[in-house]
Amino acid sequence: MNYGIIAAGQGSRLVQEGVGLPKPLVRMCGRPMIGRLIDIFVKCGAESVSVIVNEEMTEVAEYLRSLAPSLPCPLNLVVKTTPTSMHSFYELSSLMEGKGRFIITTVDTIFREEDFARYVNAYAAAPQEVDGMMAVTGFIDDEKPLYVATDDDNRITAFLDAPQAGVKYVSGGIYGLSGSAIPVLRKCLADGVGRMRNYQRSLVAAGLDLRAYDMNKIVDVDHASDIASAEAFLEGE
């Protein structure tokens, strides 16, 4: 499996709340968040890891360059400032094209290693006609969650900005996709579509077979207070 990390955001809320490190380097149980993600990907059989950071994140780029020689797989670094996470994904997409299934995460998505490993195995074992598998959670702590509607087979039928009856999941910021998702991404860029959630809606509108995988609890680190609560979650408290 090939993996990608979107780490090109500004992390402005953490800065405003007094966190001095760039978000990807904020420590999570003693490890920089981005380093922890890469460790997990390697344990899950990464063939490659691709990361995009913005042009202001010189510390993050330096950290990744220093980490690369110790990894058992290629680490591809893209340094570019982008307006949205969808545009960041577009910058990574050329590194994923032609490599079969791949998984993209945002850098501030925190999950338990064992839950992620089960998700990777489920996606790898899914029938070939499945175009993607999105990790979802019933735990809602995001300020603007993206609700995920599913049918009885966990096929995703809609991405919603507001809750609806019978909808029990929100997006976990972990996107398992295949090559069939890339032409839809290019069309979104050409049509001026913005934001990752609108891209996901476009995938459904294009008729792609997307499945939801319940990864139990997934949390985001958006505020300084989220750091301690995320660590407590990982430590099982």
Rank of each mutant, 00 (worst) to 15 (best):
V107C: 01
V107Q: 01
D108G: 06
D108Q: 10
D108F: 02
T109D: 03
T109C: 06
F111G: 00
F111R: 02
F111V: 00
R112N: 01
R112K: 12
R112G: 00
E113M: 00
E114S: 09
E114G: 01
E114R: 07
D115Y: 15
F116D: 02
Y119P: 04
Y119K: 03
V120S: 06
N121M: 13
N121C: 12
A122S: 14
A122Y: 15
A122G: 14
Y123C: 13
Y123E: 12
Y123I: 11
Y123S: 14
A124S: 13
A124D: 15
A125I: 09
A126M: 05
Q128E: 11
Q128I: 13
Q128V: 13
E129S: 14
E129V: 13
E129P: 06
E129L: 12
V130Y: 07
V130Q: 07
V130H: 10
V130K: 09
V130W: 05
D131M: 12
D131P: 07
D131A: 13
D131F: 06
D131C: 13
D131G: 08
G132N: 10
G132K: 08
G132E: 10
M133P: 12
M133V: 13
M134R: 07
M134F: 15
V136N: 04
V136I: 12
T137I: 02
T137R: 03
T137S: 03
G138C: 04
G138L: 00
G138V: 01
F139R: 14
I140P: 06
I140F: 03
I140W: 06
I140T: 03
D141Y: 04
E143F: 02
E143W: 02
K144E: 08
